[in-house]
C-alpha cells in the first residue's frame, strides 16, 4: 500500500525484459538469420532474401505474438481461478474448459473418418480445429455457468469442473481406442500444443478474445481482492457474489477456451505463473498481481517457445513438454519451501 514506486520500477524492468525476450524469440529459430537483417526487417525495411522476410513476417512474429497472448492469457486465467476457488492448485483448466476443447478436437480428428468419406475431402484444417475446440470449450463453459447458478458453494463448482474434465477425458479415451494410428497421432500432436500455426487473421481473432477476457478480469479486481477474505466477508463488503462469479468464470472461459482452441491445451503456465508472481512481488493485491501475471506469463511462454524451437536445428519440441518441465519444478519448489504460505 505504501510502495507504489518500487512496483513501478519492477514493472518497467519487467516490460524491458519482455521486449528483450520477444526480440530474442524472433531472432532464434531453425533458420539462422543475422540479427542485423531481422532488425532491418522489423523496423520496416525490405530484405534482399525474400525467404527470410517471409519467415520473419509470416512465421516468427505471429508466433511471438501468439506466445505472448497464450502465456499472459493462461497465467491470468490461472490467477482468476486460484482466487475464485481460494485454492493454490487451481489453474485455468479446473472448470473442464480445456477438456471441452480437447473433446471437440478429438471428435473432429478421430471422428472425422466417417465425415471425410461422406464429404469426399478432409475436414481437418487449423481453422476447423479451432472452431470445434471453441465449440467444445464453450459448451463446457455453458454447462459450468448453468450449474454455477444452482450451487451455492464455489468449492462444489470446483469438483463439478473436475468431473467434467474426467468425463471428457473418458470420451476421448473411447474415441482414441476406436481410431487408427494416423488419427491418433494427429490428435496427440494437437494435444502437444503449439503457438506456431496461427495466421495473422487467426491471431487477430485470438487477440480480441484475450482482450475481452482481460477487460473482464480488470473489472473483477475489486471483488477478487475481497474474495481473499472468503465469500461471506466479500459479501459483507458489498460484493455482488453471483455477478462477480459469472464475470470471473466467463473471463476464464474466454481466455482459457480461446487459447486452447488456437494453441492446444498448454499446461502449467496457468498454474505456476500466479504462484511465481505472488512470491516475487510478495503481495496478494490484485491491482499489482494482475498486470504482473500478464507480463510474467508472456515472458515465460516466450522463453519456453524459444527453447522448444531448438534454435538452429530443424526439430521443434512440443511446447507442452517444455512448459511442464519448467513449470513443475517451480510448483514443487513452492510447496517445499514453507517459509511463506502458498496462497
Amino acid at each position: 500500500m505504501d510502495k507504489p514506486k518500487t512496483y513501478r520500477n519492477s514493472f518497467i524492468i519487467l516490460l524491458l525484459v519482455l521486449v528483450v525476450i520477444w526480440g530474442m524469440n524472433i531472432c532464434l529459430g531453425s533458420v539462422s538469420i543475422p540479427f542485423s537483417e531481422i532488425l532491418h526487417s522489423v523496423l520496416g525495411g525490405t530484405l534482399e532474401n525474400t525467404a527470410w522476410e517471409y519467415i520473419i513476417w509470416n512465421y516468427r512474429i505471429p508466433k511471438a505474438f501468439t506466445a505472448v497472448l497464450v502465456g499472459s492469457g493462461l497465467a491470468l486465467s490461472g490467477l482468476l481461478m486460484q482466487t475464485l476457488f481460494r485454492n493454490p492448485l487451481a489453474g485455468p483448466f479446473v472448470l473442464g474448459i480445456s477438456s471441452g476443447a480437447s473433446l471437440g478436437a478429438a471428435f473432429l480428428i478421430m471422428g472425422s473418418a466417417t465425415l471425410t468419406s461422406l464429404f469426399g475431402f478432409s475436414l481437418i484444417t487449423d481453422v476447423s480445429l479451432a472452431i470445434v475446440s471453441s465449440i467444445g470449450s464453450f459448451l463446457v463453459l455453458l454447462a459450468v455457468i448453468t450449474i454455477a447458478a444452482k450451487v451455492k458453494d464455489t468449492m462444489t463448482l470446483l469438483i463439478i469442473g473436475l468431473m467434467f474434465g474426467s468425463i471428457s477425458a473418458a470420451i476421448v479415451s473411447v474415441l482414441s481406442y476406436f481410431s487408427d494410428a494416423e488419427k491418433l497421432q494427429q490428435f496427440v500432436y494437437w494435444s502437444f500444443g503449439s503457438v506456431g500455426n496461427l495466421s495473422w487473421q487467426q491471431l487477430g481473432i485470438l487477440s480480441i478474445v484475450v482482450l475481452i477476457g482481460l477487460v473482464l478480469s480488470v473489472l473483477s479486481i475489486k471483488p477478487l481482492n475481497a474474495l481473499l477474505l472468503g465469500e461471506n466477508y466479500a459479501k459483507s463488503l458489498g460484493v455482488n457474489l453471483v455477478h462477480s462469479r459469472y464475470q470471473i468464470i466467463i473471463a476464464t472461459g474466454l481466455l482459457a477456451g480461446g487459447i486452447t482452441a488456437f494453441a492446444g491445451p498448454i499446461a502449467f503456465i496457468g498454474l505456476a505463473v500466479p504462484h511465481l508472481t505472488r512470491q516475487i512481488f510478495n503481495t496478494t493485491e490484485h491491482r499489482i498481481l494482475l498486470p504482473a501475471v500478464v507480463i510474467y506469463g508472456a515472458i515465460l511462454m516466450l522463453i519456453c517457445d524459444t527453447i522448444a524451437q531448438l534454435p538452429n536445428s530443424a526439430e521443434v519440441l512440443p511446447i507442452n513438454a517444455i512448459t511442464s518441465i519448467l513449470g513443475a519444478p517451480v510448483v514443487i519448489w513452492l510447496l517445499v519451501r514453507k517459509k511463506k504460505m502458498v496462497f
Partner: peptide, 27 residues
Amino acid sequence: TEPVASKNLSVQELIALGRQPYTNWLG
C-alpha cells in the same frame, strides 16, 4: 469464525479491505 482465505495478506492489506464499500471500481 471462518478463517481468512488467504493468510498471505498483510495486516495492513487486510484492514484496508474494510474500506471496499467506499472505494472506486479499482479499490
